[in-house]
Design a protein around this nucleic acid. Structure first.
Lengths: 108, 108
DNA sequence: TCTAATTATTGCAATATTGCAATATCACAA
DNA sequence: TTGTGATATTGCAATATTGCAATAATTAGA
């Protein structure tokens, strides 16, 4: 049904999956990398960085914003998007908590 | 068109997004956590762990296997799935490389 | 005011994802 | 050989995602 079940999982699992899902598109990975790199950016710069149209970029930005990875403030008639540092560390904790687990020895 | 463009991104960005996407579902997060926890598992155990039917679980396992996170060996008429330790560390490196970047000071 | 620049939203069309029921496969045991 | 248990595959149906063109909304400047 294209609809992900949510009952039967912990809140942490759902949050983790939600974050991972948002990072699950090369355009959004590229946006995050770019923002981390230059540490601030007006949305229009992204037109030169991504192989996508302006509306599509706007959509990806909206999704990153929805989970709090980025935040934007209005700067005249343009936008200033940047990483939300607090949220970013939170996400690092969440994903790091999973990734940090050591798998046992080769078992099969 | 529901189809993600791949030209215009680096191979690393695409790989990173692919991994993140696979982890972008609570069932798959739960499977990975479970496998890391018990360090081996026959697929049928998952019926008790996940709120999903057997065919659906099988599909999620196939997706985890496709990107190499898990591997399975045949054990009689059942399967032994476990984390691929080498691949897991590789993934930790990839995602860690992104997550580890420090965002600058609050800028907007 | 009129226009240009910038970003967001809407409206499609195409493809992908998720889920279950039904069925197929395969190994093992009786 | 027949049946049982375990897993995979197929075949839907419903929803989600991705992308662009067109358009709206907003601000700044002439």
């Amino acid at each position: 049904m294209g609809l992900t079940k949510t009952e039967g999982y912990t809140q942490a699992q759902i949050e983790l999956a939600t974050i991972a899902k948002v990072l699950g598109h090369p355009a959004r990975v590229a946006i995050v990398q770019h923002l981390l790199e230059i540490n601030a950016c007006i949305g229009n710069d992204l037109m030169d960085v991504l192989p996508l149209s302006q509306p599509t970029i706007s959509r990806h930005l909206a999704e990153l914003k929805k989970v709090g990875i980025i935040q934007g403030t209005i700067e005249g008639s343009s936008m200033n998007y940047c990483i939300n540092p607090h949220r970013w560390r939170e996400i690092r904790q969440m994903l790091g908590g999973l990734l940090g687990k050591e798998p046992g020895e080769q078992c099969c």
